[in-house]
Design a binder for these strands. Sequence first.
DNA 1: TGCAGCGATTGATCTAAATCAAAATCGTCG
DNA 2: CGACGATTTTGATTTAGATCAATCGCTGCA
Lengths: 189, 189
Amino acid sequence: MTFRRNVEIYGEGEPAVYLYKIQTGAVQTYKVLADGRRQVSGFYLTGDTFGLETDGEHAFSAEAISECKLLVIKRSALVALAARDYDVACQLLALTGTELRKVQDHILLLIKNAEERVAAFLLEMAARVPVGATVELPMSRQDIADYLGLTIETVSRTLRHLESTSTIHFSSSRRIVLRNRSALTRLNT
Amino acid sequence: MTFRRNVEIYGEGEPAVYLYKIQTGAVQTYKVLADGRRQVSGFYLTGDTFGLETDGEHAFSAEAISECKLLVIKRSALVALAARDYDVACQLLALTGTELRKVQDHILLLIKNAEERVAAFLLEMAARVPVGATVELPMSRQDIADYLGLTIETVSRTLRHLESTSTIHFSSSRRIVLRNRSALTRLNT
DNA sequence: TGCAGCGATTGATCTAAATCAAAATCGTCG
DNA sequence: CGACGATTTTGATTTAGATCAATCGCTGCA
């Protein structure tokens, strides 16, 4: 399956039919509250799996944040396979576990101040795009803000401030070079 | 196993040897950051299971918040059992899933304002202590504050404000009667 | 080449919650 | 019963980040 930028892959509350693995591109999962506030619950990049739900329906919506190629597998097929094959069951458990750790880390983010949140976000993205110190961000400032529980203005100001202290450098607004990773790590307590 | 109030059951980073089920009492899991800030990640009451970890070690510490009687099972025994018995594997998966949903809900809490957080907390506790509208809180204001990402003063003021609007009533500082559940639900958007 | 439109930045002001500082209650134990 | 320590509440002040309001600067397209 392929999806264009900004296209919804599934909606919150819909039955969870497929499990998705990203071949190329990036995806975000999110929830919109009644008053329009949005919480981005996670970003998924090449190689990541998303759409796994504990009950039959999606707890969040998912949308492509860049052009995406996805591999899909029917949830029902996977469950049937897991019933017979212990290894598959194990992998399912591991996937849920990975997701759990992701969300637990996210909670620790949300109790920190703005600079710490942004630093943690940059390190998290850098860890996932292993090559070098340059991080290519597929998501907009608004997406980052909704992930970090901040406003777009605060994200922008904080990034700008980190640049002014030579901690990071912008090649362009979506390409960031980490110039002082230990300074970021120090913020990431 | 039994534990007294305020006694640590296990510490963050320790190998996860047991899985715990609460017979009576209450437990909280938490993490303390380098600068002393504490994040309570969850409260566990009678009937709840905690201590399940995706890798071999505990991601959080656990402590008894009241006198506790716990049932324990060796993690290794459980894993061995799951390898042979599909139902056990399923239960493991379901437990991890329950935990995942708990944490996802917790994230949605943390992006809300103080009143909404407190309202959501009260409803969550009320849902778990099914009898009537009275909620007996085993945890201190500080524990609630660290769970909600607020200060103890803000929690106290918010509860007091909810009482002044007749939404709740204090039998004592740890016993709360929900007098207007729909007002709380409205805050819980 | 110029310009329309969106995403990002910057600046000024406001506010919810934090912080600092006492007081008031509550339990518990001699 | 009374007193001490802990927990909770209340009050005054500060502040980090939100909100409101422009402006800037790409990027794509005619």
